[in-house]
Nucleic acid binder design. Structure first.
Lengths: 244, 244
DNA sequence: GTTTGTGAAACGCTTCACAGCG
DNA sequence: CGCTGTGAAGCGTTTCACAAAC
């Protein structure tokens, strides 16, 4: 029971939400998975859940679940388990999901369209509050109940829609410029789908999702298993144009 | 220079490609990032690259680059650096990317369409060899140069197109059944975009990409920074219908 | 002089195993 | 008796720092 370690020790320049322990990265990245599993359990009518059952639902070991949850405080009951509703509430509070966060999606191309139409965000604490593109031909287009605005209006859009997170779904060549403009507009969290490394100032948080990298990691294990050389043509001489 | 450790020690039931060291997971997951960076450097006309420069291009520390690359063998030259072309070749060999791998995409909905149209795969060693859906209305539709086939024909499709990897882009409720059918058809590598945990037999490799989870991790850090309670409505009482 | 390759130290995460509580 | 919460051990990864190689 030693959380809340980062209370008011140092110089409280910036108000830090009072009871927010700084959790291990590995734990933070699993909390959303527990949350997903807990919602499923709640929907199935479960009131309480043991670490064993939650571990099974989330695809991890039970000791890990207990360690992770103990970081948030003592919300379990020995001999019984965890109260599902209470736990959902606590995890949402820790993740800052007690209210909906607005997301700006930059790049309304192939992937952008799919993300804009993906229903899975609304359920999970996010709302696409802005669609942005650099192509004037796309500005004005309506997707769902959001109209595409121009990237030059980003500062106004971010302010008007109170954007908390920027999602970059542009070609790689444009991604750094978009990141710079997001940062300039005051956005401090970026999810980057473009296959490139972004450089941002300290204090800005970037997460990358590269679909080809995931496939390449699978390829390695497939290769090792001896499902060795696949088929297809002998890999075209790589047209020297990669990057994207 | 001690790689090649797993030569022919145990019972060589299944032929393992001769010179394949088993790399640390962390290294495997970074090799694709080095590869991407190396392609960019090659395109920019660089013949050689130091661990420092490659580290900068890949967004990591130079010591990590050297440790990672030393796992593949000694392909650097002291005082000079690494030969870019040689390194690209070695990494592609280790990842099993010397020839194109065929991917089957299951679920031609919103996200499926975007993935099918995403040009970034072909450049990086993959080809979408099959599009599959359960909806008869979608079967026969043509996207690029591939025609959508029915999930009931999966075994034939996998065999005909020599599918190495299955990508699941269906709603969560269908994902497990799709995974079962992929496994039954002989696929041993799965990339899952559905927000759920898949259960598969040992020997099958699953990687998950959950877009909402990435946003929730960003939300945590945003929350901690004091960009505290966002805006929006007070989160609707969660319609009890989550899961997807 | 420059840069790799690598032992060894430091770190963080996972797993074990059990005391403590209901 | 069942299950949580947690010290402590175990393990893999990162970082340091420097000898060896060019």
């Amino acid at each position: 029971m030693s959380q809340f370690s980062r209370g008011s020790a140092g110089s409280p320049d910036r108000m830090v939400v009072p009871d927010l322990p700084d959790l291990p990265d590995a734990t933070v990245s699993r909390l959303p998975e527990y949350l997903r599993a807990l919602h499923q359990l709640a929907q199935a009518g479960q009131d309480t859940v043991s670490s064993e059952a939650l571990a099974a639902a989330a695809g991890v070991k039970s000791a890990k679940v207990r360690k992770d949850l103990s970081q948030l405080g003592s919300y379990g009951t020995r001999g019984v388990g965890y109260d599902v509703a209470l736990l959902i509430d606590q995890i949402q509070r820790v993740l800052g999901l007690t209210q909906c966060r607005n997301v700006a999606l930059i790049g309304v191309g192939n992937l952008g369209h799919a993300l804009a139409g993906y229903g899975g965000f609304a359920n999970r604490g996010f709302r696409i509050g802005a669609l942005v593109d650099a192509d004037p031909a796309r500005v004005g287009e309506r997707l769902g109940d959001v109209v595409v605005t121009h990237i030059d209006d980003l500062p106004a859009t971010v302010a008007a829609e109170r954007i908390a997170i920027g999602v970059i779904a542009t070609p790689a060549v444009a991604a750094q410029a978009v990141a710079d403009r997001l940062v300039a507009a005051g956005v401090t969290s970026i999810l980057n789908f473009a296959p490139c490394v972004l450089t941002v100032p300290a204090g800005v948080d970037v997460r990358n999702v590269d679909l080809a990298i995931e496939l390449q990691i699978l390829s390695f294990h497939e290769h090792r298993r001896g499902r060795g050389e696949p088929v297809g043509a002998p890999l075209p001489p790589l047209p020297k144009v990669v990057g994207s």
